[in-house]
Design a protein around this nucleic acid. Sequence first.
DNA 1: ACAATACTTAAAGTTGACTTTAACTTTCAT
DNA 2: ATGAAAGTTAAAGTCAACTTTAAGTATTGT
Lengths: 146, 146
Amino acid sequence: MYSIGEMAKKLGVAPSTLRYYDKEGLLPFVKRTNGGIRMFSETDYEWLQVIGCLKKTGMSLKDIKDYVYMTMKGDETIEDRLNLLRKQQEIVEKQISELEETLETVKFKCWYYETAAKAGTTDVPANMSDAEIPPEFIHIREKLKK
Amino acid sequence: MYSIGEMAKKLGVAPSTLRYYDKEGLLPFVKRTNGGIRMFSETDYEWLQVIGCLKKTGMSLKDIKDYVYMTMKGDETIEDRLNLLRKQQEIVEKQISELEETLETVKFKCWYYETAAKAGTTDVPANMSDAEIPPEFIHIREKLKK
DNA sequence: ACAATACTTAAAGTTGACTTTAACTTTCAT
DNA sequence: ATGAAAGTTAAAGTCAACTTTAAGTATTGT
C-alpha cells in the first residue's frame, strides 16, 4: 500500500494531480483509511498506468472516466471497451502518421538551413530547382507553396 | 492576394485565429490596405504553413514568434535557425517513439478485450500465464504492473 | 447611394488540466 | 504527549490558445 505522496513519486506526478483525478471521478477504486487518507494498492497503480496511457493518446479526462466506469460495471461492457480501444488505436495510428509527415517537413527545413549555412545565404536553397534539391523534399516544398 | 477570411478558409482555421496570431506578433510580414485591412500573399501562406508545421511539433506560439523574428533578421541568424530546427527534429522523433510505445499498449488492451470477449469474461486474459499470451505483449503487461 | 457583407479593435470569456492557497486533521517518531 | 510531516477539503488561481462580444469601419454589388 502507498500513500498519495508515494504513489505520486512512483508515477512522476504531483500529489495534487492524483487528488484532482480523484475529485473528477477517475479513481473510484481508491480506498481510504478510517481517518480518510487515500491508500493506493498495486492494482490502483496498474489503473494509473492505464490512465496514463490513455492520456498519452490524447483522450480527455472525461472520456477516461467513462472508460473507468465501464470497467467497474464488469463483463457486460467488454464489447464497449473493445470498441473504445479499437477507436483509440486508430487515433494513435493517425497521430503517428501525421507526426511522420511533420518530421519530414522539419527535416526539409534542416536541409534548407544546412544548405543556406554552407552558402552563407538562404537565397541558395530558396532558388534551387527541383533537379537540385534532394528528391525526397520535392513534394514537401510543393506542399508548403500550394 | 487573400483577405483574412479567404486565407482562413484556405488554411482551415478561424479568422479569429489569424487575428490572434497577428496580435501575438507571429505575422509581422502581413501587409495592410490603406483602410487597415490585412492582405495575405502567397508567401504569407507559405509562412502560415511553416507556423502550422511548428505548431504540430508542439512548439509554443512564443517560440514560433522567436523563430519568425529570427528569420526576419536575415542571413546572420541561419545557424541559430538550423540549431532550433535540429532540436525540433529530435523532439518530433521522441514524440513518435513515445506514441509508438503507447500504440503497443493500446494494442495489448485490444488483444485483452478480444480475448475477454471470446471467453465472456476478463478473468480469462487477466489470469493467463506469460506462455499463453502473444509474446510481443509480455513486456507491456509487465511494464503496467511494475 | 446604400444595403449587405466582411473587415477592424479591445476586452472579456472559454476550456481543460492542473496548481495553489487556506484552514484544518491524521499519522508517525521520539 | 507532542511536534513535524504529510494528509484532507473547497475554492480560487493559472496557463495557453483560442473564441466571443461589442462597437465601429471598409469594401463590394446592384
